[in-house]
Design a binder for these strands. Structure first.
Lengths: 241, 241
DNA sequence: ACAAAAGTGTTACGTGTACACCCATGA
DNA sequence: TCATGGGTGTACACGTAACACTTTTGT
């Protein structure tokens, strides 16, 4: 990675991504452990090049972090209190060099830039968790999938941002039929139901749920899925394109 | 007005306001005629002080433009193509001084700042049109209420922004019961119905509409409104606080 | 008494929920 | 043939839509 040039980016404006995945009947979010401070967590994010649109920037940041292209992505809200200053909590920590940053990439001027006040554009992404190959960003130690129910306290207003993203997801899941982005290509009806239950945190009766989803006419029925269990084999479905 | 100091503001980030009003059975938007160029229109907007939140900035801008406090305000989307550069269309026009700006307020450096690339945060506001006393901003000649159906071609992507705001309004009108912000304190059921018809651009049967709205239990019935017409006098209603 | 429009009531329809039932699978 | 869970069908409740009707007001 080359030197960070602040002139390349829009100042004081960042993009934070709430990357949703689904596994083990849980809705999960990809969060990052920061490489400075003690037990500090945050959402993966990035900055906007002067030459790209904000949607392109979000897609690029997602691509850099997940290795995936054509991710389902939705801008849901901008966040911008005057207290959204990375430095207000960690500026001293960073500057004191408690953890060293790569001086090749970040000089003092760049660190000042990064630790100023930021307005952030919140995007949420829906991915097939198993296809993601998470890559760390600047100031990050590692990334981790965590259930939305068990998120740690994160830096700044990132917990608020996730809550807002979750709310937006709930509002859009049905209307825009985006839930299938969280599942693999083929899935059973039960898996769809359990996904909905994870998102809305409530139960759906199987038979009525099936009728509702099939009534949308967006799924095509494939073969059956034989698991070896001593019960009727469920059908596999695929999202129509 | 004092000198414009760019250091006071967040760079490359603006707020554009879609101010909705309602009159003569039409949903209207307050737009401004620019003081340079020929027949150029845009949305009223402004910039964000380093010391305020984005919501505070939007409320302040609305206050400056309408004279009203406690306006219903909702952030609905951020817009940020790399082509959103005021200068790309008008930079030369501005710089050539086709219309002179107040040099006390804007020096060359400030004009460079203003004509760069901007990401904009879209807010929509709902106001009682008759209470608004529109005040022009920088680079503006006058403000005008125009029906959403008859908007002129505006600068940049402002037509897109209005369309997006209108869509957000439609989605929220019912759910958040915000429509009454567009009406005076007292109103008849027919006026509410006609407002809804203006927003959704379709008809609602009076009797069912009445049942639905009254069923929400958010209105209190006051006296009757005698207009002198030779028909039964309608009730007046008020929004419960 | 009449025209105009406000307001109320009654019925029909469609969606979603609850319940009951049958079917396939492998031990 | 039995237990398990998948899948389908039917009856009911609810909210919305369509229709008919009564009431008020001023000429």
């Amino acid at each position: 990675m080359g030197k960070f040039k602040k002139e390349d980016y829009i100042a004081q404006l960042s993009i934070d991504c709430v990357i949703f995945g689904y596994k083990n009947k849980e809705l999960k979010v990809l969060i990052s452990k920061l490489s400075y401070g003690e037990n500090l967590w945050s959402l993966p994010g990035g900055y906007i090049f002067q030459t790209e649109s904000i949607d392109e920037a979000a897609a690029r940041i997602l691509r850099e972090r997940t290795g995936l292209d054509n991710i389902y992505l939705e801008q849901f809200k901008a966040f911008g209190g005057p207290d959204r200053i990375i430095g207000s909590e960690f500026r001293d920590l960073i500057r004191s060099g408690l953890r060293e940053f790569d001086p090749e990439r970040f000089d003092q001027e760049a660190i000042d830039w990064v630790t100023g006040r930021f307005v952030c554009l919140g995007y949420y992404a829906l991915v097939d968790l198993d296809k993601v190959d998470p890559k760390i960003g600047d100031f990050e130690e590692f990334l981790k999938w965590v259930s939305v129910e068990e998120l740690p306290k994160m830096t700044h207003d990132h917990n608020t941002i996730v809550a807002s993203a979750h709310k937006a997801l709930r509002q859009n899941l049905d209307e825009k039929l985006i839930g299938f982005n969280l599942l693999p290509e083929q899935f059973t009806m039960r898996e769809v139901k359990e996904l909905y239950e994870a998102v809305y945190d409530r139960e759906f009766p199987m038979n009525n749920f099936q009728k509702k989803i099939l009534g949308l006419n967006v799924l095509e029925r494939l073969g059956k899925k034989f698991t070896g269990a001593q019960n009727r084999a469920p059908y596999l479905y695929r999202f129509k394109k």
